[in-house]
Design a protein around this nucleic acid. Structure first.
Length: 271
DNA sequence: ATGCGGACCTGTTAGC
DNA sequence: TGCTAACAGGTCCGCA
């Protein structure tokens, strides 16, 4: 679930039910997330009023009048809004009860996610301070990628999945964007021309942008909280299609592992 | 500075 | 059918 579009969908789904409301109570059932849920969450969050909820990369930032709650969904996490109390289920690790009687419930089977508390400017938090630009904003450009990649021997796929280079490009979208741009995922990042980076930046923006729009579908029944099946799966050109024909040229898509991540591409269309 | 591999966990699926 | 191994949408950290 949690690629950037899902995180953005979560932000949009949660915001109307959380922004402007006071936290009544925090219930932590299991502190063992990626980092232990700090006691400050229990002691400082209750009584605080939630302001704007922002997203930085795949981190969600809940500004309050006393500090900022940082949430990451890891690989399997979700944050749902419940309008009435329901029995907590397996892996429902944290509840945040609000003054409007809504409940934010954090669930994460693999516990790769985190919930942290920080004072002051959250962008200075060590998890956020070294992050690269947002892929959908103006400052993410071909020029930027081209400059940053000079001298880099790492593959272009590894390069764009590096959150210090650009945030929010996960494995699925890295595969898809490279296919759209016609660039082999194995090519060294430092040996790609500015012209081709123009194609890649456009591809990243379009792939993420349209996936966020698809996320709007899930948005509607967000509060109902049904699971979200692969609503963009049919649009994927390469991810999860290893061995199947390229939709453009018909050649069998090749699947390799790059940095322990499954990588699928067309040897004809991507160079 | 860069690049690689390991680590953190559970759930699902492929293969024997 | 049942057991085991591999793999999964993330990303931080430590080491070479």
């Amino acid at each position: 679930m949690p690629e950037l579009p899902e995180v953005e969908t979560t932000r949009c789904g949660v915001a109307p039910y959380a922004e402007g409301y006071r936290v009544e109570k925090v219930v932590v059932r299991d502190r063992r997330l990626r980092w232990p849920v700090p006691m400050e969450l229990d002691t400082q969050l209750p009584g605080s009023t939630i302001g704007e909820i922002q997203r930085r990369g795949k981190y969600l930032l809940f500004a309050t009048d006393t500090g900022t709650l940082i949430v990451h969904l890891g690989m399997s996490g979700s944050l749902r809004v419940l309008t009435e109390a329901q029995q907590p289920a397996r892996h429902d690790h944290v509840d945040i009860v609000l003054s409007n009687n809504c409940l934010l419930r954090y669930n994460d089977p693999r516990r790769f996610g985190c919930m942290l508390w920080t004072l002051g400017d959250p962008s200075e938090h060590s998890l956020l301070s070294h992050l690269g630009p947002e892929p959908l904003l103006e400052d993410f450009t071909a020029n930027y990628l081209h400059q940053r990649s000079r001298g880099r021997k790492a593959s272009i796929k590894t390069f764009i999945m590096d959150s210090q280079v650009v945030v929010g490009v996960g494995n699925i979208y890295a595969n898809e964007a490279l296919y759209r741009a016609g660039i082999s995922p194995l090519r060294a990042a430092g040996r790609i021309s500015l012209q081709r980076y123009e194609l890649l930046v456009a591809a990243i923006k379009s792939v993420l942008g349209s996936a966020i729009k698809q996320g709007g579908t899930t948005l509607r029944d967000f509060v109902g909280g049904d699971g979200q099946p692969g609503y963009f799966k049919q649009q994927l050109a390469v991810y999860d299609r290893g061995g199947q024909p390229c939709r453009s040229c018909g050649r069998e898509l090749r699947e390799v592992r790059l940095g322990q991540r499954s990588t699928v591409y067309c040897t004809v269309c991507q160079r």
